[in-house]
Design a protein around this nucleic acid. Structure first.
Length: 407
RNA sequence: GACCCUAUCGUCCAGCGGUUAGGACACCGCCCUUUCACGGCGGUAACACGGGUUCGAAUCCCGUUAGGGUCGCCA
């Protein structure tokens, strides 16, 4: 379909107009990959792109209405006199709807202090910016007849309208700015990947019709069709968004994974040295990650000897008859190997287990706790390989000393 | 209250006159497995209700009910 995406900041209400609020809009849009072609920071031929700076335009169109005698003053405000004739909205999603306007009150278009009301400036801007398609939430469907009246009074053809379903909370209530999931910043903070969130959002009110859930934006764009938009409001399901995020991480390129992980790792204060030193670690934990926020927790012990031993893991795996003896034997066996790769480590561990008449798991679990302080982590053999022989032997030594004394 | 929109598993979607009503998330089993995940297999679970139309309705029409929206000198 193509088209030009115009970003316009509707800041006619000075009370709510703050720089942070605008920044949040820029950040959220950019993060989602919804870069605008025309608007603030991008320029364009129909600026300025802040309504607060377009007063001349509004004055100009107000004059048109005054000349036609369809506005009047009411307690200092300016109001538009509705013709009170039926208005038919031809909506690309909702179809043709005729509103009987007979009882409608006249709308205010300008306050006594000179500031403008949304409906009027919106119509003026859409005219001036040559907007062809107005796609907006269904909450505006009932406002559309008012807008059409304004287009007519101003002497312009209304654009195409498409009203799309709203997003509700999980309990069916209307989602507002402060509800869970409503703000893009929470996805950024929690470590969702932008492509996953965008994918999830695309599935609300639309689908590729073939039961696929994970679908790239390029394909969404090529398959998208306003006719296929649902008319039913959708409830936001964070669980599913979370799942889709996991799917994206699963198939993500390592470099992309690193790019998205690093901000969280740095924020956690982990000194990982260079990206080259970090990559092997990320490679073996990637399949465990569901949210980038969790990355630091999964990799911390790779970059410090000062890690804590999880008490429950110690209890379960180290304070068991024979555990430390197995560990000591394995430490010795590891010390004798020349190569240090996952395959060698695995072979040596299994060989040691057999020699000691123990099950593989009886060596694996204590070793994991000795090397990482915890019982959950990536594949043990790969973990030991990445950790390096010297550090592994030292950690085993330390563990035996620390827990042997009290055993 | 008036007007508008909507109505399939708990949730998101598929279905567009004839299906054992399908997929996904979540949930519950089992399998895989060095942990945790991934993955695989299976299961629970829905056409809001009442009238029509039709040989036949989840699908079409009407009503009821329910939910959402608009009716601002908010956007």
């Amino acid at each position: 379909m193509g088209g030009t995406l115009v970003l316009r900041i509707e800041d006619t209400d000075q009370k709510r107009n703050t720089e942070e609020a605008v920044q949040v809009i820029y950040d959220g849009l950019r993060w989602l990959g919804l870069d605008w072609n025309e608007g603030p920071q991008m320029g364009g031929n129909y600026g300025p792109y802040f309504q607060s700076q377009r007063n001349d335009l509004y004055e100009k169109h107000l004059k048109t209405l005054q000349d036609k005698g369809v506005v009047y003053e009411d307690e200092g405000s300016i109001r538009y006199r509705s013709p009170r004739q039926p208005v038919t909205v031809r909506d690309m999603v909702c179809g043709t709807i005729t509103f009987d306007r007979a009882m409608e009150p006249d709308m205010t278009i300008r306050r006594p202090d000179g500031s403008w009301i949304f409906h009027f400036v919106n119509v003026v801007d859409d005219i001036e910016m040559k907007i062809t398609h107005v796609l907006r939430g269904e909450d505006h469907l009932s406002n559309t007849p008012k807008h059409i009246e304004l287009y007519n009074a101003l002497g312009f053809e209304p654009p195409n309208f498409a009203h799309i379903p709203l997003i509700l909370n999980r309990d069916g209530s209307k989602m507002s700015k402060r509800d869970d999931g409503a703000s893009i910043s929470t996805y950024i903070e929690q470590g969702y990947s932008p492509e996953a969130v965008r994918n999830y959002l695309c599935l609300l009110g639309w689908s590729p019709k073939d039961n696929r859930e994970v679908i790239g934006i390029d394909e969404v764009v090529s398959l998208f069709d306003l006719e296929k938009i649902n008319r039913r409001n959708a409830a936001f399901d964070l669980d599913k968004c979370f799942w889709i995020n996991g799917q994206y991480i699963h198939t993500m390129e390592m470099d992309r994974f690193a790019d998205l992980s690093i901000p969280f790792i740095e924020k956690a204060g982990i000194q990982f040295g260079s990206r080259e030193q970090l990559l092997p670690v990320l490679t073996i934990v990637k399949e465990k990650i569901k949210l980038f926020r969790d990355v630091p927790e999964w990799i911390s012990y790779f970059f410090t000897e000062d890690f804590a031993y999880d008490e429950a893991s110690v209890e379960k795996n180290l304070r068991k008859p024979g555990a430390l003896e197995h560990l000591a034997a394995l430490q010795e066996a590891f010390g004798s190997v020349s190569a240090w790769d996952a395959a060698t480590i695995e072979a040596k561990l299994k060989e040691t287990a057999v020699a000691r008449g123990a099950k593989t798991g009886e060596l694996i679990h204590p070793t994991r706790v000795a090397a990482s302080g915890r019982s959950v982590g990536p594949s043990l053999y790969h973990m030991l390989e990445v950790l390096g022989k010297n550090r592994v032997l030292a950690r085993m030594e330390k563990t035996i000393k620390q827990f042997g004394a009290v055993a």
